[in-house]
Amino acid sequence: MTAPLALTPAMADALAQWLQGQSAARDRSAHTIAAYRDDVIAFLGFLGGYHAQGATPASLAGLRQADMRAFAAAERGRGLSARSLARRLSAVRSFLRWMSDRHGYDLSAALSMRGPRYQRSLPRPLAVAQARELLDHARQHHDTPWIAARDAAVLTLLYGCGLRISEGLALCGRDWPLPDVLTIRGKGGRERRVPVLPVARDAIETYLRLCPYTLTPDEALFRGARGGPLRPGVLEGAMARMRQSLGLPPTATPHALRHSFATHLLSAGGDLRTIQELLGHASLSTTQVYTDVDDVRLLEIYRRAHPRA
């Protein structure tokens, strides 16, 4: 097969307009828009090589299911995982639906191709006792007291509020003191409100009392050893050392505390809609993975405890 051809001007213009619409109307993040662009360019570039001529808006009218299957086979042949291919095909289908609506041609046959099936990976939460042990250990894991207090404060915040590590480290001086309900801007610019537990506020207050750097409105709330913003890699490294000391699995990462927050809420009787709002998930289907986690843990307990298991 010949090498993929460059996008025609008309197709490049159409792609730019679609991406602009995704960014404006659907409030997609810059990272998501960049991924969509790469996905559709890969598809259109494949079509150019496959048919030996650059894809145009008019040529898409003749798109067949065989073209979609050939693209999927080529991507799998390049080593793309089933999960990544499913995401790529989803972006391509969205673009094609937009093109068909805009130009009035029927692409139902091509769009009817199903994406590959893949095993959705389940989150790896900590047990409640493990989470408590970790937070207790964090308070004295480092020889420098203020650094130990800082790490304990961040981890308590991630677990207590279900924050992503980037969201916790994005807090700055003007956010302190934390209100009873904190407004977080997450993925895609979506805002959500999360309650702040007193234990998280107390942990941050302890850290700030020991921190040698002055808190200013525009600087990071959580500081690195030299006074700059705390980097995620530093916290992840500290977490790696702590889990080694405690004998926790490699899946015990800072992000696992967010998973633990959701799983423990569900186990305690929290409803999925509320947990979805607290986590900032755009779709309930994303949150529903925690029901699978809860079932898995329930079966593990059953097998260990049942006398006839």
Rank of each mutant, 00 (worst) to 15 (best):
E277K: 13
T214W: 01
D180N: 08
P232H: 10
Y213I: 08
T183Q: 15
A203P: 11
G168C: 14
C172E: 13
D294H: 10
M242W: 06
L208V: 11
T287Y: 07
T214K: 14
R185G: 00
R164L: 05
Y159L: 11
R243G: 10
H259M: 10
L178S: 00
L257D: 08
A200Q: 08
R209C: 04
C172S: 15
L163F: 01
V181R: 12
A238F: 00
L171F: 07
M239H: 07
L197W: 03
D175K: 03
T263S: 14
G188E: 04
T251V: 02
P232A: 08
H281D: 12
T206C: 10
G247W: 09
L182S: 07
A200L: 11
A170R: 07
H259D: 13
V181S: 04
D294M: 12
S260V: 07
M242R: 14
C172K: 15
Q276S: 08
Q288R: 10
P254Y: 01
D292H: 15
D295T: 13
Y213S: 08
S260W: 10
G227D: 06
Y213M: 03
V293W: 09
C161I: 09
R273C: 10
R241Y: 01
L158Y: 13
T291C: 02
L235R: 00
T253R: 13
S166N: 13
T183F: 00
Q244R: 14
T253C: 12
D180C: 01
L257P: 14
G168F: 05
L171R: 14
T251G: 06
L230V: 12
F222P: 01
G270N: 03
L163V: 06
R226G: 02
G228F: 09
P179I: 01
L221H: 02
L278N: 08
P195W: 09
P229C: 03
L266V: 10
L208Q: 10
P254R: 00
G188W: 04
V181Y: 00
V289R: 02
V196A: 09
A256E: 08
L163P: 02
D294T: 14
P198V: 12
G227N: 05
F222Q: 03
P179Y: 08
G269S: 11
A268T: 00
D180E: 15
I184P: 01
L266G: 05
P250Q: 13
R243Y: 12
G188R: 05
L272A: 06
G189R: 07
E205F: 00
D202A: 15
G280P: 06
G160H: 04
G186P: 04
S285M: 07
I184A: 02
R241L: 14
D292G: 00
P229V: 02
P250R: 11
Q288N: 08
E236A: 15
L230M: 14
F222K: 07
L272R: 06
A238L: 01
F261Y: 11
G269T: 12
L230T: 05
S283Q: 15
L215D: 06
G168I: 03
S267E: 15
L230S: 03
A262M: 07
E167L: 05
Q288A: 13
G233M: 11
